[in-house]
Design a protein around this nucleic acid. Sequence first.
DNA 1: TTCCAGGCGTATC
DNA 2: GATACGCATGGA
Length: 265
Amino acid sequence: MEYIKQGRDILLKTPDLNLDETLDCGQAFRWEKTGENTYRGAMLNTPLTVSAEKDYFRFSDTDEETFLNVWVPYFDLETDYTAIKEQLSRDSTLEKACAYAGGIRLLRQDSWEALCSFIISQNNNIPRIKGIIGRLCEMYGGFPSYGKMKNVAPDDLAPLRAGFRGKYIADCVQKLNGGEIRLDEVKALPTDEARKTLMTIKGVGPKVADCALLYGMYKIDCVPMDVWMKRVMEQFYPNGFPDFVQEYAGIAQQYLFHYMRTKIN
DNA sequence: TTCCAGGCGTATC
DNA sequence: GATACGCATGGA
């Protein structure tokens, strides 16, 4: 990764990053394509417009401190995806998946934002997930902290049209505000214990927990098992992943999920 | 109209 | 532990 400042922008050179593949592959729901090669979105309430230009990525109107503290970790820019893909490609299916969309990166999202987003995601489709999260941000003037949502009742969330998920969000907010669950502590736990803790929240089962762990806490051994990944495992890995995949199973899952959902029918 | 969507809670065995 | 069913909403 190398970057230079240009006025109020940061210009970044990095391999293994494609904005479409990374920002519109179902791991984050707040990025909107605003131009041919441009996305606008945010992490919590830090906004960003990012574009792919000829030889670099332009992070618009971003100071160096925000770039280094927020966007470098968010886009996982210090991880060598070339090496990871090389290792994963020892498996023939993953080789195809990596070749198909090699510009996917695992976004290191905020733990609360990821947890909340994936509670909303259950038994739901991506356009509607985006709609509900969009209305949540509208309602609170940006993505609300759980503190800002303190004492929220399911009925208060009716305008989101989140269906039965409203009461799950309310329960999550309550447990976080009550200190019953502290996400920074969960993050420090081994994956299995962290998963168990998250699953004490109503509406958080194995799949939503694994999404929060993978996308919000960078537990890259987690493989969220949704309908698409179940199909992948049935079709290609009836006996599980090979050992050399395990280390990066969560990242492998990104390539495979996208491959199965968009390429294979 | 019916089916499905990055599932989960509950009841039942 | 496994299986069956209902659940809010909206697009296909």
